[in-house]
Amino acid sequence: MEPSRAPDCHGGPLARQLVAPLLRREAVGSTHHVLTFELDRPLEAEPGQFAMVRGAAWGSSPFLPRPMSLLEAGKTPSILVKVVGEGTRRLATASPGELFTFHAPLGRGWSPCPADRTPVLVAGGVGVCPLLFLARSLASLGREPIALYGGRTACELPLDGALGRVAELRIATEDGSSGETGLVTRLLEQVLRDTNGRVKAFVCGPRRMMAAVAGMCRDAGALCEVSLEAVMGCGFGACLGCAVPRAGGGYLYACSQGPCVDGFAVDWGR
C-alpha cells in the first residue's frame, strides 16, 4: 500500500506527547547525528511526518521544542540532527538515557507517488531525513526511486550510504568532492530530460533549492511535492507561527497543512 495522507486535523488522532529516553546517538560525519529514542509502544508515522522534541531537563531555556523530521517510526524512532543553534547543539550532545519529550507524529507526510510516475527524491543536506524514510517505504512497496542528493561538499551528505541502498543515488557537490560538480538541479535536469517529465519529485532542502526544483518541475510537466521548513512554536496548528507564503496569497502553515505540500502551492518569490 502507498503511504496515505495524515487526516486533516492538526496533530492528527495518533499524535501524542510522551517522555522517552534517548536510546543512542550516532555521529554521522563530523556535523550530523542520528538520535534514536525508545518508546513504550510503536510510533505509527508516515514518511514526511515530524516530531517536536525537547529535553525534559532543559528547564525554561531553550523554551520551545524543536521540530524534527522523522527518519524512522516504530518502537525506536529516530531523527537526524544538524547543529544550527542551542537546541540542536543540546540534542547533538545528549547521552543515552537522557529523557526527552517526544511529540509525534505531527503534520502531513508525503502523498503517494502515482503508479505511472517515477519517484525522484531531491535532497539537500539535512533534508535527506524525510526522503530516506520515504525511499525505504517506496522500496518496500517495490518502487525504484531515483535519489538526487546535493551539498556544498562531501561532508554535507549525511546518510548517503543508506540512501544508496534503497534508491538509485546520484550525487552533486559544489566543490566536486563527491559526484558531479555543481548543484543538485543539474542532476534533475538530466532526469527530467530522460523521463520526459514523467516523474514526481519529492523535495527537501534549502528554500532556494526547493524553489528551483519546483520551477523546473512545473516547466517539465512533472509533479512536485516539497517538505517545508519553518520555525515552529507548537507543531500542531495552535500558534500560527510557521506561516509560509501561499501561491495566490495568504499563508500555508507548515505544521498542520504541511510539512509536505504541493510544490506549486507555495509562493517561492515572497
Binding site: S60, F63, V231, G233
Partner: peptide
Amino acid sequence: RVGNPPPRLCETASGMLNAIGLA
C-alpha cells in the same frame, strides 16, 4: 485576517517573541 509575513516567531532566553498579526 491572514496575519503577518514570516518569520513570525523566534525563541529568546526563557521565552519567545511573536508577531503573528492576529491571523
